[in-house]
Lab assay of single mutants.
Amino acid sequence: MTEYKLVVVGAGGVGKSALTIQLIQNHFVDEYDPTIEDSYRKQVVIDGETCLLDILDTAGQEEYSAMRDQYMRTGEGFLCVFAINNTKSFEDIHHYREQIKRVKDSEDVPMVLVGNKCDLPSRTVDTKQAQDLARSYGIPFIETSAKTRQGVDDAFYTLVREIRKHKEKMSKDGKKKKKKSKTKCVIM
Score class of each variant (00 low, 15 high):
residue 20 T to G: 08
residue 31 E to S: 07
residue 42 K to M: 09
residue 6 L to S: 02
residue 60 G to M: 03
residue 60 G to Y: 03
residue 64 Y to S: 15
residue 16 K to C: 05
residue 31 E to D: 12
residue 38 D to V: 02
residue 15 G to D: 01
residue 32 Y to I: 09
residue 63 E to L: 03
residue 63 E to G: 13
residue 20 T to S: 14
residue 14 V to K: 07
residue 20 T to E: 05
residue 56 L to A: 13
residue 46 I to C: 13
residue 41 R to H: 06
residue 50 T to H: 13
residue 22 Q to H: 08
residue 6 L to K: 00
residue 12 G to P: 10
residue 56 L to N: 14
residue 45 V to E: 13
residue 18 A to F: 01
residue 5 K to D: 07
residue 29 V to A: 10
residue 63 E to S: 10
residue 31 E to V: 08
residue 35 T to S: 03
residue 31 E to P: 06
residue 56 L to D: 15
residue 30 D to W: 08
residue 26 N to L: 05
residue 5 K to Y: 01
residue 59 A to Y: 03
residue 9 V to N: 03
residue 59 A to F: 02
residue 28 F to P: 03
residue 39 S to L: 13
residue 12 G to T: 09
residue 11 A to P: 09
residue 62 E to L: 08
residue 46 I to S: 12
residue 20 T to A: 11
residue 55 I to E: 00
residue 61 Q to E: 14
residue 14 V to P: 08
residue 2 T to W: 06
residue 42 K to E: 09
residue 6 L to D: 00
residue 64 Y to K: 14
residue 27 H to F: 15
residue 16 K to F: 02
residue 21 I to Q: 10
residue 46 I to F: 09
residue 17 S to N: 00
residue 37 E to Q: 03
residue 30 D to I: 09
residue 3 E to P: 12
residue 53 L to N: 08
residue 41 R to N: 07
residue 52 L to R: 10
residue 22 Q to G: 12
residue 27 H to R: 06
residue 9 V to M: 12
residue 2 T to K: 15
residue 29 V to C: 13
residue 54 D to V: 03
residue 26 N to G: 13
residue 8 V to M: 07
residue 28 F to C: 05
residue 54 D to W: 02
residue 5 K to I: 02
residue 37 E to I: 04
residue 30 D to Y: 08
residue 58 T to Y: 04
residue 46 I to G: 11
residue 61 Q to L: 10
residue 28 F to T: 03
residue 13 G to P: 10
residue 43 Q to G: 12
residue 41 R to T: 12
residue 34 P to G: 03
residue 20 T to P: 03
residue 18 A to V: 06
residue 25 Q to D: 14
residue 46 I to V: 12
residue 61 Q to D: 14
residue 3 E to T: 09
residue 27 H to A: 15
residue 53 L to C: 08
residue 35 T to G: 00
residue 37 E to V: 03
residue 48 G to W: 04
residue 58 T to F: 04
residue 42 K to S: 12
residue 39 S to C: 11
residue 9 V to E: 02
residue 51 C to V: 14
residue 10 G to E: 01
residue 59 A to D: 06
residue 49 E to D: 11
residue 55 I to T: 11
residue 37 E to T: 02
residue 13 G to F: 12
residue 32 Y to T: 05
residue 29 V to Y: 14
residue 22 Q to M: 05
residue 4 Y to G: 07
residue 52 L to C: 15
residue 39 S to F: 04
residue 16 K to Q: 02
residue 52 L to P: 14
residue 11 A to Q: 08
residue 45 V to S: 14
residue 12 G to R: 07
